[in-house]
């Protein structure tokens, strides 16, 4: 479970201009980094790069000390984005079953996720019937169903109500105490200790290089 993340001189472009220029940081096991910064500064793009969805235009993203050095970055991480990855016409329960089978989770993990996120009333509903907060709870289930050392969360709290914000914070703290690491884009402060990484726009000279 002990995996650390090293970002070295990372450059990302949006179109043909630089969005993030020469960014370096690292995240140790058991540590949570909160990404903050103005809208459009590249928080989501950075998270997606950490997930391996985007190839950096310069620099490296490395996960060091992995349990499975052969496995790709994506297979070590959970990525929870703005879109909930739920098909509107399918039952919530069927989506959970699929996610567990696809991500290699366990039945025990699924039961635990249903219990901890209070999902049992939702399972028989089509996902299009769910509210934004309910959908987010369903998405969070995969964090528990299939244990992975890296959690990449894009504003995970925003659609949740107070009760479930506390629940998710609890899950995140549990993950950290087991030696997992979290990188999380946020606007509101998280209710536990995190290291803040504030993204700023690169200087004008670096924009078109």
């Amino acid at each position: 479970m002990a995996l650390s993340l090293v970002v070295d001189a990372l450059s990302l472009k949006k179109g043909y201009r630089h969005l993030i220029h020469d960014l370096s940081f690292s995240v140790a096991p058991g540590e949570c980094v909160a990404l903050t910064g103005a809208n459009g500064v590249g928080k989501t793009t950075l998270l997606r790069t950490l997930a391996g969805f985007i190839r950096p235009d310069g620099g490296h993203v490395r996960y060091a000390g992995g349990v499975d050095p052969e496995g790709s970055v994506a297979a070590q991480a959970h990525y929870l984005g703005h879109a909930e990855a739920l098909s509107p016409g399918r039952l919530a329960g069927a989506e959970l079953d699929f996610q567990r089978a696809f991500l290699g989770g366990t039945a025990a993990g699924q039961a635990e996720a249903i219990r901890r996120l209070n999902l049992s009333p939702l399972l028989e509903l089509e996902t299009r019937m769910l509210s934004a907060g309910q959908k987010r709870r369903l998405s969070c289930a995969r964090l528990i169903m299939a244990r992975r050392p890296v959690w990449l969360l894009d504003e995970p709290m925003s659609p949740l109500d107070t009760e479930h914000r506390a629940k998710l914070a609890e899950l995140m703290q549990g993950h950290l105490s087991e030696g997992g690491l979290i990188v999380c884009a946020v606007h509101d402060a998280l209710p536990f200790e995190v290291r803040e990484l504030r993204l700023t726009a690169p200087a004008m000279e670096a924009v078109y290089g």
């Binding site: 043909y16 201009r17 459009g40 726009a201 078109y208």
Partner: peptide
């Protein structure tokens, strides 16, 4: 041109 324009838009809208 597009790169610079997007950049200006970001300056004005984002900061």
């Amino acid at each position: 041109y597009n790169g610079l324009r997007a950049r200006l838009g970001f300056r004005e809208g984002g900061a």
